[in-house]
Design a protein around this nucleic acid. Structure first.
Lengths: 224, 224
DNA sequence: GTTATTCTTGACCAATCGGTCAGCTTCTTC
DNA sequence: GAAGAAGCTGACCGATTGGTCAAGAATAAC
C-alpha cells in the first residue's frame, strides 16, 4: 500500500477535464464510492458494491478510475482539498473569540454537510493512515503549527489562557467530527433518527460556549 | 448482518470456561483479532490475516470461534463489558468537579491502555453500528440518561452552568477517544511517534481544566 | 492401558475479489 | 457520411474469501 499521494494525480483532484459524459459518470462513481468506502474502509469496500451503488457495471468503474486504489486516493484528495481551505488566513491581530467561534462553526458545518467525507477520512486514520502519512507529517502539520503559533501569541497578550494550542485544536477537531463519524451512536442515544439543523445549531452553540469559556477567551470589545 | 447481541453469547463474554489449552488459544486469537479488526473493519479483516497474526492455522481459528461473525461479536462484547463498569455509581450528592475529572481521566486511561478496543468500537460505529444498534438504543442510552439527570440537578443547585448534559458527555467521549482512534493523526502531527505517558498526562490535565472551567463547575469546598 | 474427548490441520469447496480484454455501440469531427 | 475517438460491458482470469470436513495427534478420564 502506497504511503503518499502521487503529485500528478493531485493536480487532477478536481474533475474539470474530459467530456460531459465523463464528468457526469465520474461524479456518480465518486459519490457512490465515498458512501461505500466510508462505511466499510478501504479493504472492506468492493468494486461490486460501489458499482451497484452507482448503478453502473463494474467494468465501467474500472474504465473511468483505473483501479480501486486510484479511486480511493482520488477521493482522499478531494477531502484534503476542502480541508485545506479552512481558517487559512488568521493573524495575531484577529479577535480570538471570533476566530475560535468561526473555526468550530465551520467544522460543524462540514460534519453536517459532508458526513461521508468525514467518515472516509476517519477510516483512513483508523487503519493507520497508509495513504495520508505524508500529508499528516507535512501540510497538515505545518497548518497546525501556524494556528498554534497564533494561539500562543494571543495567550501572551492575555487574550486567552496559556493552554496548549495543539491540544486545543485536537479538542475542536474531535468534538466536531464526532457528529459525523459517530453519527450512528449519536442517533441511537438521542433517539433523533436524523440530527436536524436545529440540533446541530444547539450543539454548535454549546461547543462555542464551553471552549471559549474553558480557554478563558476574552470577548471582543464591540468597537476597534 | 445481525443487529443484536445474542443473549446466550453475552453470558460467555468472558472466557472462563474450557480447559487450559482452550483458554490460552482463545486469548491469543482474541488479541490478534482485535488488532486486525480494529485496523481493517469487519469486512476488511480476513481470517487468514488473523490466523497469521495469532500464529495459528486458519482452521484453528474457526475451530475455536465458529465463524468470523461470532469472533467479531465476541470482541465487541468484551469492549462493551469494560465500558459498562465506568462511572456507574454517581449521585447528586457527589462533587461535580471530582466526578467530571474522574470521568475524563478514566476515559483517557482507557484510550491509553486499550487503543485497539477503542478503534474496534469506532469502526463498528463508522459502518453504522450493525451489531451494536440495540446496545446503543438500550443500555448505553439509559446510562447516558442517568448521568445526564445528575448533571442537570447539579446545574439546578448552581454547582455548574446549565449546559446540555448529553452534549457534554459527547464532548468528553470524543475528546478522549480521539487519542486512541486518531492515534496515527496525533502521532503524525506532533512528531511523537508514540505518545508517552507524560504526553497523555499533559493532555488529560488540559481537558480537565478546559471542560471544568468551560462548564462553570464550582470547585469543591475542602470540607463538608 | 484403554476409552473418550479435545485438539489440530491440510485438502477442498463455492463464492467473491480486483483486474483484463475483445468486441461492440455511441459520440465527435471534418 | 466516413473515420477516429470515446464509451460500454459481458466473459473471463488467477487469487483470495469464509467455511467444511475427515483423519490423525494429543490429552483427559477411568
Amino acid at each position: 500500500m502506497g504511503s503518499q499521494l502521487d503529485d500528478a494525480a493531485l493536480d487532477r483532484a478536481l474533475d474539470t477535464e474530459g467530456g460531459a459524459i465523463r464528468q457526469r459518470n465520474e461524479r456518480e462513481i465518486l459519490d457512490a464510492a465515498e458512501r461505500v468506502f466510508s462505511r466499510h474502509g478501504y479493504r472492506g469496500a468492493s468494486l461490486k458494491l460501489i458499482a451497484e451503488e452507482a448503478g453502473l457495471p463494474k467494468s465501467n468503474i474500472l474504465y473511468y478510475m483505473g483501479s480501486k486504489k486510484a479511486l480511493y486516493v482520488r477521493l482522499l484528495e478531494g477531502v484534503m482539498e476542502r480541508w485545506n481551505t479552512m481558517l487559512d488566513d488568521i493573524s495575531v491581530e484577529d479577535d480570538p473569540a471570533e476566530v475560535l467561534s468561526a473555526f468550530i462553526r465551520s467544522k460543524m458545518e462540514m460534519s453536517r454537510r459532508y458526513p461521508e467525507a468525514s467518515r472516509l477520512f476517519a477510516g483512513e486514520i483508523l487503519q493507520g493512515a497508509p495513504f495520508l502519512q505524508d500529508f499528516l507529517r507535512g501540510e497538515l502539520r505545518d497548518w497546525v503549527e501556524g494556528r498554534a503559533e497564533v494561539f500562543r501569541q494571543w495567550a501572551e497578550r492575555g487574550l486567552m489562557d496559556p493552554v496548549d494550542p495543539v491540544s486545543l485544536i485536537f479538542l475542536i477537531w474531535s468534538a466536531t467530527q464526532h457528529y459525523a463519524d459517530f453519527e450512528a451512536q449519536v442517533a441511537g442515544i438521542t433517539g433523533h433518527e436524523h440530527f436536524t439543523d436545529d440540533d446541530m445549531q444547539r450543539v454548535t452553540d454549546f461547543l462555542v460556549q464551553v471552549v471559549l469559556k474553558g480557554c478563558g477567551v476574552v470577548s471582543a470589545p464591540t468597537g476597534h
